[in-house]
Design a binder for these strands. Sequence first.
RNA 1: GCGGGAGUAGCUCAGUGGUAGAGUGCAACCUUGCCAAGGUUGAUGUCGCGGGUUCAAGUCCCGUCUCCCGCUCCA
Length: 494
Amino acid sequence: MAAKANDVLEKIVSLSKRRGFVFQSSEIYGGLNGCWDYGPLGVELLKNLKEEWWKFMTYRDNVEGLDASILMHPRVWEASGHVENFTDPMIDCKQCKSRFRVDILADSIAVKKQRKMLDTAAPKLVTHWLYAGGANVSDFDDSKVAEIFTSILEDKEFNSVLIEELNCPQCGNKGTFTSPRNFNLMFKTFVGPVEDSGSVVYLRPETAQGIFVNFLNVHTAARQKIPFGIAQIGKAFRNEINTKYFLFRTREFEQMEMQFFVNPDADKQWYDYWKAERLEWFKNLGISPYKLRYHDHPANKLAHYAKEAADIEYEFPFGWGEIEGIHNRTNFDLTRHEEFSGKSQKYFDEESKEKFIPFIIETSAGASRAFMAFLVDAYREETVNNELRVVLKLHPRLAPLKAAILPLVNKDGMPEYSRKMETDLRKRFKVFYDDKGAVGRRYRRQDEAGTPFAITVDTQTIEDDTVTIRERDTMVQERISSSRVAEYLFEKLG
RNA sequence: GCGGGAGUAGCUCAGUGGUAGAGUGCAACCUUGCCAAGGUUGAUGUCGCGGGUUCAAGUCCCGUCUCCCGCUCCA
């Protein structure tokens, strides 16, 4: 069972590479863990699904679009709680396999001892910023020493000096620690030419904050009244400890988020509404309904900002996995931003004459995860005439290529006729021309790419301007007038 | 981070210290008459990367990277 599930995933990884859906990042250099590139077909599929989401979510009178920058003021992440909650360097004892948070480990060591260790280690720390000005450990009080001790423990360049001397609180052995691993999920970088602590910025770990900080801008500019939402699609970055399952857990990924601002009295109603809407979206794009389910978070497991939360899960070959989260984030985020920025985030309701900080209902989908769910769900192996047929039964609106144009044979004017048809259709549809090999082989090639329609030009075409259109899933052909092909595709693509 | 498996042609894989292989795919040409047809010809390999042992390494040893699986982690 597990082996079989694994097979499916490996086949999809293989197909993805062979046909140009997904390549490993930096492959010729040996790859980069947890990063993937979208190839010619992959980028079309990804673009299509993002467009479906965008239309579904923002082609409404109460949702506006936004594209916030990836780099934001570092205080944003203090307000959001990410700096505090995501900065947990961990250290492992190789002897007894215990794991400790570095700051907690440091707390367990008496300040007196810390001071002594720093003194002893001083010759090896002369290039550390702490000693740059000729400072001495004895110049600092206890709390400063503790702070310095922890910061050196967390400093990649210098921590080995102290770690070698540490005893494991669990088993008592000395020098058995690994280097601390920084389990902070945020990638850090620097603005400007100087790489010091004052210039630190983060690659956003979620797109949501870009929406929250623009709440009042959008409200004013778009003249929206509550309830209304702001939607955004964009990259986010998390320095995950472990990446996993192909595209499922990656370090760089894309989110499709919508934050809906509501009167606190109406939170439940809108939470339920969006929860239902979002599941429908996946179903309407053809995902097998029995492979979708809600996972409601029990009250005692909710994140600190959430009042109610549910995941939409898809049953991947490796098990159920979250592809979208719906949260009632309450007024947590705006309250925090008001506090940290000093700018009021209150909303004045003209009708009720009340002033309040809105509650936020969040729908947060992973575009990369959705991509994988659609791909996995579409993958089929069928037996046709005792031959294996691999077909991606992607929804036509998601399919990277909408139609293939195939001259039955390369003579009697068929290629010329086909080329002309290709030129006409290409203006409006992503189409593919193929005259290589037998037509049966060409059909199968398109099946594997998920192309929903194949238009074949044959002898009769030359005589009466009709072509056959072959449908991917049923392999049934119908003959229609050449002049109706574009119309036909429009109809089928909704 | 820990433990297990894997990495050789685009893909799937064989190759048990002695000349780098198969199937499939790909490209060109011939042949075609609707579901992976046939023929001819051709191209593609730092055997993941780096060291070591050896007269000789895809093969043995060490390190490292990446992928998969199980833990751990995932406010």
